[in-house]
Every structure is written in structure tokens, then in C-alpha cells.
Amino acid sequence: MQLETRTSKTLKYAFLTLFTLLVAFPVYFALVSSLKSSIDVFLKPFRWPQPVMWENYPRAIAIGNIGVCFLNSIYITVVTMVVSALIGTMAGYVLSRLPFKGSKFWYVIFVAGMMIPMQSVIIPLSFVMGKVQVHDSYIMLMSLYIAFNMPMTVFITTNFLKGIPKELEEAALIDGSTRTYLFFRIIIPLSIPGITTASIFNFLGSWNNLLFPLVFVSKKSMQVIAIGLQSFFAQRISDYGGVMAAIIISILPPILAYVFLQEKVEEGMVAGAVKG
């Protein structure tokens, strides 16, 4: 690769560092605030915490029932993510590489769903659930998430899979493999970057989602992290130090997930680059 001049490199770093400070500031603010008392968070936003209130963290965990919410959220999100990735890629494969009459139609049907505002389906959904007398069901919740993940996932996978060279498929087919085998053994590994991108969206969608668990899950023991955060806003009392602590706690799994997935993305990207 061509070497860069030193000045351009320094300029780059300077800009990037400045930009990094800008981006990181709010999170830094949350971190510092999580160790302050509520009043200090308001009155002295920039002052270093004094005294350092480590107890905000255990309190956050206790009051928000964060521990349980945490596990629930992880469970729901992981299952949703895996199922969405699988069936989304399957659909994407069909829509992108097996043209059939009406494939464009189905594609548009899927993608149009990206616009469905979640609020608008609450009433009809609760109606149905009320009739069927289904409450506090994780299957229901996860099915909802999977359903709402489909537009984005299908969109990403369809477009991504379009980029896989036809010759690869043809070679495998000539060699006598079935399409299913081809799909699981060849297509999926090649589409890891696409799947990962979609999965990141899906993970975050379920992780952050507040509305559905709020309305459809009422049992405390089944609550999720987004609800746990809400419990800090008592009707007439607040605990901003604790909220910040809870925020910091709740962003750890997504960060870890990303770090883990990122390696997969690297793998896929390198593989892609080598294959050309």
C-alpha cells in the first residue's frame, strides 16, 4: 500500500482524536455521573465525583431488579437474534438468487415492513392476545421481535447475497450437491458479514425495545432491562446517579456482543477479500 505523508497522517489522527472526544463525551458523562449523588449530577455536571458513590451500582442492581432483567434480556435477545438470522438468510437467499415469479413482490412486502411503527400494532395485538388469553409469554414476545426483524434482515441479506458470484453456486451444483447443502455449507459462511450486520440490528432492536415488554409482559420476574431502567423514575422521586449506573451496566453486554461479533466480521471480510 502506498505510504502516506507524515503530515496527512498526523492530520488524520488529530481529526480522529477530536472526533473521538466528541463521540465519547456523553458516555464519559454517564460514567462520571454514575458515581455522583443525584443532586450533584444536576448542579455540578463537570465536577469529579465527590464523594465517589460506588454504592450507586449495587443500589441500581437491587432496585431495578437489574440482575434478573439482565438475564431475561440476554436470553430473549440471543434466541431472537439466532432465529432471525437463520430464517432471514434463508428468505434472503431465495429472493436474491432463485428468481421466481413474484419474488420482487415478496421482497417489497418484506421491506415495506421496515416502516411499520411499533406503536400502531399494540392495540390489535393485545386484542388478539386478550382473546386467546395469552399473557406473559416469552414465545409471544420473541415471535414479535422476530417478525419485526424480518424486514431489515431480509433487506440486508437479500442485497448482500446478490453479491455472491454465481459461478460458486454453479460449481457446487455441478459437483452434485443439493441446494440445501449448498446453502448451509457455502452460502452461509460467505454471508457472515451480511448476517452479522443484520444481527447487530436485531440484537439492538430486542435489547433496547421497551414498548412490547412494557405492554405484553407484566410479571416482574420476566421483565427486561429497558423496564429495569424505567423503574428508576418513581412517580415523584428520581435517582439520576443510579440511573447512570444502570445505564452503564446495561450497555456492557451489547459492547461485549459487538466485540465478539466483530471478530466474525473480520473473518468474513478477510475471506471475502482473499476470494476477490
Binding site: Y75, V79, S137, Y138, I139, K219, S221, M222
Partner: peptide
């Protein structure tokens, strides 16, 4: 994950 979904899913 699929198995556990069915086992743990309903409260």
C-alpha cells in the same frame, strides 16, 4: 436456543 425457547418460554 430453540429448545430452551420452548422449555422456558412461558413464565
Amino acid at each position: 436456543s430453540l429448545l430452551s425457547a420452548f422449555v422456558f418460554a412461558n413464565g
